[in-house]
Design a protein around this nucleic acid. Sequence first.
RNA 1: GCGCCCGUAGCUCAGUUGGAUAGAGCAGCGGACUUCUAAUCCGCAGGCCGCAGGUUCGAAUCCUGCCGGGCGCGCCA
Length: 579
Amino acid sequence: MLEELIKKSLLAVLEKYSVFEEDIDIQLEKPRDRSHGDLSTNLALMLGGRLQRKPRELAGEIAAEVSFPGDVIESVEIAGPGFINFRIASAYQVDLLMDLWGPEGALEAIKTGAQKRINVEFISANPTGPLNVVSARAGAFGMTLVRLLDAIGYDAHAEYYVNDAGLQVGLLGRSLRAHYLQLAGDEVEFPENGYHGRYLEIMAAELMEQDSLAVKKAASAFDDESFQRITAPEGNAEDWRKKPEEDSVRCFSKYALMKILSWQRETCRRFGLRFETWYFESELHETKRVERALERLRKTESVFEEDDAVWFRATDYGDEKDRVLVRTDGMPTYFLADLAYHYHKFQRGFEHAIDFWGPDHHGYIQRMQGAMEALGVARDWLEVQILQHVTFLEDGRPINMSKRQGQFVTMDALMDEVGADVAKFIFLTRKPNSHLEFDLDLAKEQSNENPVFYVKYAHARICSVLRNAAEAGIDPGEPDAEVLKRLDQDAEWNLVRELIRLPQVIVSAANSREPHRLTGYISEIAGLYHQFYHQCKIITDDEQTTLARLHLSLMTQRVLRRVLELIGIDAPERMGEKN
RNA sequence: GCGCCCGUAGCUCAGUUGGAUAGAGCAGCGGACUUCUAAUCCGCAGGCCGCAGGUUCGAAUCCUGCCGGGCGCGCCA
């Protein structure tokens, strides 16, 4: 690593001042202003006070004495109040660039994850309706983070938790049943707080037409292992209708759950989300994991009974209040099931777990981590990322997204209107913890001005240049260091300097859980390529120049593809209707 | 009331974890297509980084207090 080398060389000089490695954390950073060199350190400023020296003077001495092996550093200068600025030799920058070309694309060096297994859980929406746009944002973040973690050498596992055992599913069945009975002409009272979504009306209408064979067939959509436990209820809606209310509701619930999960899964596929596991809450109950988790927790003396309920002493673990585990009616709370779920996640051998939650769940973090701690799992084993809400604007006005009102923007509608790629890109331009305002009209009507096209266009433009080269009978072959070293224009080097940042961008995006750094990075790359394209004619009469610029184009293409792959966006060969 | 998040150009947001003259896109104004794709590029204009203190060589960034906005504070999930 270049930075390590510079630090080592600086430390060698610092010994004269009786400053050693353990005394100081040398910081190297890329200056904003390029005239300040490629890398800069503030160490003279940091040491000035301690050594009773003027920082600028000190910087001068250090700069004069420091030396580097090889021809890596071209120049060392002091500037400002005492910064020491380094200029990296262009030949060395070309070497760094070439590292990006191999099959691992210079990423071998950043694979620090040691194949540790990390579970990344996201979306986990209630199975009570189609996925909405909040889930879309979570999907874009979660899936990209999984790929980022894999890229730096972890074994990341995408997981979706299905709350199929709670009261909401019963309410869903009750609502579907009410819709159905209404269609069938029965007098029914709609359940209090029931689901009024149009999708349930449609589902009820479909049910009118379906015989038991059709119902069974609907279940066969689930072929993969995660969904083995999902089956269709026997018979058809007419049969269910005749049953006693409780049995009847159960059948309608089962059917609704099955249908909605098939929608959700299809929507995820369409959005490019690949979950390795769909984990069902009902399985936790069936396998007695909920009870066992409670038993285990009881042994820790952080459980007590009061008012006929069972409580977790969450206040001992940093929470504001103690929390109920088992309600007065003997039913476990969502919290207990969820904690059993996370404990099982731990038992399944994940060394770390990352959950993406909505902002309304942030008050839930303390009790969850507290309970895990009580069970003997380190507090930071579970990491919770809060994703702020998305406000969708249509006609300049926010859209009400309450499911209960039956009026919300679905993820499918979003993909229909703006496309999956545009949506993903926009979601990933903001950091997780900031609110996102998504103007639907702007995204679909003025989609040419969307940043995602800017990046795609840069990629397509490169493809076009390469096609033209091929047509002119030029075969650039593989990028070559000797050829690239002939680059001599500012626009070319601006691009080179940015391209070689790829590894560190990936590392920082992964470790900070901020995938939005990727979109910023490729927007920058795309911009620099467009500038280069305008400033430097690529295919010229000069064979050497042509070759060097084609190689630079190939490198840019490689980097754009790599990052677009991480985000899950298509890199088109040419721009057209579809993009 | 308590807790968490946010406040940066007219709008939407970045700001490399404390660095040098605070950036980009959109909107506005002015330029560049006989050209390897103009879905692009170049230029201009736009700022009390919510306010006030503090920490130090140095603060949009860290600490404290206000102001303003969002969310949470269930034996719901």
